[in-house]
Design a protein around this nucleic acid. Structure first.
Lengths: 208, 208
DNA sequence: CTAGTATGAATGAAGG
DNA sequence: CCTTCATTCATACTAG
């Protein structure tokens, strides 16, 4: 909505203080120092983004409420987070992944040779074009182009933690089973003892 | 020939009839300075939202097609609007209002978190679906929850035009009487003298 | 500080 | 009604 009805003021945003170490984090958060000073909106930590991205990459597109709960709970260890944050994250990530693809697909049109940066967000699709979706792409809903009921590796073992660079192919279509997924074991494998920074930054997504 | 989205049919219910030849809505009242340049989708003005919110607050949850007609007609004064916009608005608003009011007190109480959450904001549930299989008393889908045929004050008198700051939105459960509401009188109680902005922004909902 | 970008949050619009 | 997609708005973040 346009009219913000809560949260703090908007002017103070410019004068935010970045917790340049030596704060509550104790040791410095990795990456982009995500600890926002206020609680205006959720600012995911690098670890949270990492996990979420991995989940997405492994095929999770629309987590059920139950999954959202578990995810957010686990992620709360890395910092403040709410369920809705997880929900929104997946929504946005999926949407933008698709949007990006669609944009590319449009630029595939060779009727015009326009120079455009492929990252711009100011010229999207024509205003009214999504009504008659007889397009060629983005019509995943119609055809169930499912790969196979593969047991989507929910227990992503930790790995070199650097491969999340890019979500190249989003090939997947979450197979939710009527709101109740395979409530697999929920072994809270707390990896203790591993010498690591702050939280056990390993992608153990077995909590799903 | 301008691009007009003439896909105004086949919503789902018998609600909201078709535009039936335009109407008198012409203007582009930029209430929030963010008027969408093109067609795209309806961007309600502040006044429209105000009225709709008030209607909702006064108990209207699922307006009949007839009511939708009247509402959208009245609202067309503040800007371009169609019946389906009203229809969708109520549907979405109702659904999201409900979603928003969900407790986040699952069995998993993460109280063993000594994270100084200075966020005293309420935990709003993500606008997702039926989150939490919490056995809440909200499971009255089968039953028609009609209160008594009370004469829902449809003629909301205008008031200081600033009280819509936030509608608490607690107790309101549409009391429709078998699809036909009380077509109460239509007293045009014009409260003049109140300092008003541009349009006669007064909540005269007596047109219902 | 200003401009531009990335992305969290919100909500209009459908489909089922 | 419920679920999901698409689009838009607001804001955190970053570069100049």
């Amino acid at each position: 909505m346009k009219n913000n009805m809560n949260m703090d003021e908007g002017i103070s945003s410019r004068f935010y203080v970045k917790p340049a170490g030596g704060g509550g984090d104790g040791g410095g958060v990795a990456g982009k120092g995500s600890m926002s000073s206020k609680c205006g909106r959720w600012n995911p930590t690098a670890e949270q983004v990492k996990v979420l991205t991995e989940l997405f990459r492994s095929g999770l597109r629309t987590p059920s409420s139950d999954q959202i709960q578990k995810i957010s709970h686990q992620l709360s260890f890395y910092g403040k987070i709410e369920s809705k944050n997880v929900f929104y994250w997946f929504q946005n990530h999926k949407a933008r992944e698709r949007q990006k693809r669609r944009k590319v697909s449009i630029s595939l049109d060779h009727t015009h040779h326009h120079h455009h940066h492929q990252q711009q967000q100011h010229f999207i699709l024509p205003p009214c074009s999504n009504y008659f979706a007889d397009d060629q792409s983005t019509t995943n809903k119609g055809g169930t182009m499912e790969l196979e009921p593969e047991r989507m590796m929910k227990t992503l073992q930790l790995f070199p933690l650097n491969s999340i660079g890019e979500t190249e192919g989003d090939n997947d279509h979450q197979f939710r089973v009527n709101g109740k997924q395979y409530e697999e074991a929920t072994a809270f494998t707390y990896k203790i003892g591993t010498k690591m920074e702050h939280p056990p930054l390993d992608l153990r997504l077995s909590f799903l």
